[in-house]
Design a binder for these strands. Sequence first.
RNA 1: UCCCCGGUAGCUCAGUCGGCAGAGCGGGUGGCUGUUAACCACUAGGUCGCAGGUUCGAGUCCUGCCCGGGGAGCCA
Length: 462
Amino acid sequence: MVPFVRVKEALQAPIGTDLTVNGWVRTRRDVGRISFAEVNDGSCLRNIQVVIEEGVVSEEQLSQITTGACISVKGTLVESPAPGQPVELKAHSISILGPADAATYPLSKKRHSFEYLREIAHLRLRSNTFGAMFRIRNTLSFAIHRFFQERGFIYVHTPIITTSDCEGAGAMFGVTTLDLMNLPRTPDGAVDYSQDFFGKPAYLTVSGQLEAEAFALAFTNVYTFGPTFRAENSNTPRHLAEFWMIEPEMAFCDLDGNRKLAEEFLKYLIATVLDECHEDLELFNKWIDDTVLSTLEHVLNSPFEHITYTEAIKLLQESGQSFEYPPRWGADIQTEHERYLTETLFKRPVVVTDYPKEIKAFYMRLNDDGKTVRAMDVLVPRIGEIIGGSQREERYEVLLQRIRELGLDERNYWWYLDLRRYGSAPHSGFGLGFERMMMFVTGMKNIRDVIPFPRTPGNAEF
RNA sequence: UCCCCGGUAGCUCAGUCGGCAGAGCGGGUGGCUGUUAACCACUAGGUCGCAGGUUCGAGUCCUGCCCGGGGAGCCA
């Protein structure tokens, strides 16, 4: 290939530079004997305006420079005589790398609905919104690693396939090599999983937490950042069957330390995107939600509120609001309650801690009152719950009793209990849904539009 | 999974009381000496989601199904 520069660099090159740019045509305008093509290569939101004067390309070539076509332009960067852009690329020669039939190309230069773009997820990446989206997603991903690496956390690859049907985080996808049309059976008619690939039922992971705990009890501070799967039939703008989750886990850390890390982490990510993605964020602020930038700056500069579940219920009961589900101690905090707390009452992120044990998972540390556990949820405006975490139960006897109380099979937890039997330590961690963070940062209303190729009930195209 | 709303041209939508299938954008053709979601003129383009039913006649009314959106539950 001919050496080329990215559009982002080309736009900053000195006037008079000869260079080659490769990219995809967003639009072409003909005015008299001169043509203008907007070319984008994904390096930044801005296009470079390519000026094609008469005679530079043949009539046939020009007819192929259409919206969607991929071209390579050799030219000189010049000052633009017209307002709209400081510089433009005066073409000397253009080669058509990949034409795009204008009559059938599904992306027009005009705006499309997100529902339609979702049906062409392989091409929506060439739109302004999704270009900005996935540059922000990239920046956020790198910032996540940088945050933990700067603090000495070890990155752990927890397994994707698991035989622990025990995490209590919801329905799981089965993983099998058995012939579904001809399942082996045990004498009593059940499926004989001893003949399956792993010799027992296996699933896609719903969380790397339990394995991360094992690593925290050897490396002190660790984190995971990987795909997670939930087979729930959830049809909402906030749920995916396949999503990415960040799960730090820290030894010698109680719930207070956990809460403080969560706040520091969220603010670090917000500061990073404000600093590094301002141009892309402005697109979302202009077209998607004009409160995005002000909300991010507000959250960055506000201390998070901290209340206990018991206090939250009291505040909700005394609020004078009419809720569809009246707040009651022992019942879960509903979506409408979360929104009231974070959007109306405090107008900033709220951390709720110490929930009744009955509505939380078995591994959360039991408080001395015997009724609540050291759980925390971080609620943010517009999204609701963005982080869920807890201090883990590190006491062998207490954990074993909780497993038995809930009717779980303790044999499935043998290695998890071992961690409490040998060198246990107080430890804590949380999970951040990456796509929920993306929604919060961009203001997008549907989680299917912040992940490259969304998987939801009935939909796994691409 | 439950409740509500929707599905009409490539896209976004209008279509009144059951009586000839419409617009804008996009596409094509032509015009225009610097455009900026260019502009002007002309033009092509339809299994009205699918299957039944009611009716002289259904995009319109009824039933079932499929798909999409919003809300709820579950959660991240």
